[in-house]
Design a protein around this nucleic acid. Structure first.
Length: 562
DNA sequence: AGTGCAGTTGACTTT
DNA sequence: TAAAGTCAACTGCAC
């Protein structure tokens, strides 16, 4: 990498500056659908103004991508909204976003045939297996044509991390990225307007035209920069105040949480922009006299900031090991559950369990309400995501692949790296994290004591005259269970016990533990006492006690951070 | 008034 | 981002 810095702090593409001719620069937008804090765009614009090159902004609807089993109509719907918004930003600078509907290699081939040599710039993408393979194919095509493809980091994820010191060095590398200034949007770019023959072109409407709106969610959050900024601003100004205590319950979370996750996933906001905005807000609050500070606001901001840092931590795992999408990161857990989409079919019972879980018909009101809410809105809070996954993985004993695919399609904010890391963690197959088996009835009582959330999403349980508050968490205990609501699909006590009897012995096996050590070396968080810090205090005595216990029982299970 | 005791709480461990 | 169990300290109360 030969990077120099311009006077406005942008890294410039050194090799481009020394090019004999000013080749057109193609800015390929991927899951980075924004005008602000966009390194490839800003660099292309800087170079263009210095060299006289033209800039072609490009977004491609790749049909094969949207047909992948982890993708859903709501994702292309959200992306479409972001693309529309991006079009407007480019248009206000006099440019025209080139929108095409074709596979990327076809587009590159047509582009090359019609305008000749060019330079390709984009962000590094840590996507699913399909985009990974596509990027390898694009790289091979570029190499074959002598086209330079320069990729820029777009977040804290570090490519080829092992060569740069691995996980021990990662935090520092990420911090350097996050502390760098937000990149200013370009101005007065020399735009290239390209119309290619033989490919669907023109408006975004045309490109998205045959995308079926069926299956999109009218009640999901919407894409685009304006929506993103509004959401972040209202969160930091007001909604974040009680974040720390209201994020856990689905009753309050939809209002209290930041709700910027889909914008981060599709790029209408950058993680750096968010971190800088949080910092600015924190400084503003700290500048207030103590009596004017809103109770709990600063602690809530800190908690939110912590979660923003987790974002790249989890995506980094998929970047370092793309197989995390498909295979147990700790192969010692292989064969524990039925790996349906690789080996063997699901049994009839498993099919029934999967179907009931997917549609929110398990007979456990809180689980079903969470799933119904998710399916309708494209979002549920983090704790409930964990509970849904836990219930599927333990009580229903389903492998994380089919359940993970369902959730991937259900989340508007599906981010492959976070998603598959979480799926593996919540089903206990990393070997380096505590097994967390949620009790849906306890969660129900804790997070929805009055049953308001359950009633809102399950019509069969809505009437308090029919189902009293005291029994709404366990309607099967009623003398006459409410009609129209299914009986529990599994016995909770028996299913939980069975899951424990399967997972703990496997986790204790020496081979599994040995693999867990490797998993930690490659992927584990180096943040010390992260959980303790989250709780808001140090406990040196307890920590040293635990440390000595671990030292004494070297053969015992590790409790490390994933 | 101090003692015994059942029940509660919280810190910590185990699964 | 768990839940259940253990244990010691504590509490309220009867005697």
């Amino acid at each position: 990498m030969h990077l120099v810095h311009s006077r406005i702090g942008l890294p410039l593409i050194y090799s481009l500056m020394n090019s004999p001719q000013a080749l057109p620069i193609v800015v390929w937008f991927k899951r980075d659908l924004r005008w602000h804090d966009h390194a490839p765009l800003a660099n292309a614009a800087s170079w263009a103004s210095a060299s006289g090159a033209m800039v072609l902004p490009l977004w491609v609807y790749e049909p094969e991508l949207w047909a992948q089993p982890d993708m859903a109509p709501q994702h292309s719907g959200f992306a479409q909204e972001c693309v529309h918004d991006l079009e407007r930003w480019i248009a206000q600078d006099g440019g025209k976003l080139c929108l095409l509907r074709a596979e990327m290699l076809v587009v590159l081939q047509a582009l090359h045939a019609q305008i000749g040599a060019f330079t390709l710039v984009s962000h590094e993408e840590t996507g699913n297996g399909w985009t990974f393979a596509r990027d390898l194919a694009v790289a091979a095509w570029c190499a074959g044509k002598g086209v330079e493809w320069r990729e820029f980091p777009g977040n804290g994820v570090v490519r080829r991390l092992s060569a740069l010191g691995g996980r021990d060095r990662w935090s520092r590398l990420k911090a350097g990225r996050m502390d760098a200034p937000v990149i200013a949007p370009p101005q007065a770019v020399r735009w290239l307007d390209w119309h290619v023959a033989g490919l669907p072109v023109d408006t975004s409407h045309g490109v998205f035209q045959s995308t079926s709106p069926v299956g999109d969610l009218p009640d999901r959050k919407h894409g685009g920069r304006t929506a993103a900024e509004t959401e972040l601003a209202s969160f930091l100004k007001h909604r974040a105040q009680h974040y720390r205590f209201e994020m856990s319950s689905p009753v309050t979370a939809a209002q209290t949480c930041s709700r910027i996750s889909a914008h981060l996933a599709w790029g209408s906001l950058s993680i750096r922009e968010c971190l800088h905005a949080v910092t600015a807000r924190r400084l503003a609050l700290q500048a207030l006299p103590a009596e004017k500070r809103l109770t709990g606001f600063l602690q809530s901001l800190r908690s939110f900031e912590g979660r923003l840092h987790w974002h790249c931590h989890f995506i980094q795992k998929l970047e370092s090991e793309p197989a995390i999408e498909f295979k147990n990161v700790n192969r010692g857990f292989d064969g524990l559950r039925n790996e349906a989409d690789s080996a063997g079919e699901l049994s009839v019972v498993e099919q029934q369990r999967l179907a009931a879980w997917c549609s929110g018909d398990t007979g456990y009101p809180f689980v079903d309400a969470c799933m119904r809410s998710l399916l309708a809105t494209g979002w549920i809070n983090f704790r409930m995501r964990a509970m849904l996954m836990s219930f599927a993985s333990y009580q229903l004993w389903l492998h994380w692949r089919p359940t993970g695919l369902h959730l991937a399609r259900a989340f508007t904010d599906y981010e492959p790296g976070i998603h598959w890391s979480q799926c593996q963690m919540q089903s206990g197959v990393t070997g380096i994290n505590t097994i967390r088996i949620y009790c849906p009835v306890k969660q129900s009582r804790d997070q929805d004591p009055s049953g308001a959330f359950i009633r809102a999403w399950l019509p069969a349980l809505r009437d308090p005259a029919l189902v009293p508050d005291t029994l709404i968490h366990e309607p099967w205990r009623m003398l006459t269970p409410p009609p129209g609501y299914p009986a529990p699909i599994v016995d909770l006590k028996a299913a939980t016990l069975a899951a424990k009897n399967r997972i703990y012995p496997r986790k204790a096996e020496p081979e599994v533990q040995a693999q867990a050590r490797q998993v930690f070396d490659k992927h584990g968080s180096r943040a010390s006492n992260r959980a303790a810090m989250e709780r808001g205090g140090q406990r040196p005595a307890a920590a040293s006690k635990q440390g000595s216990a671990v030292a004494q029982n070297g053969a015992q299970q590790m409790q490390l951070d994933w």
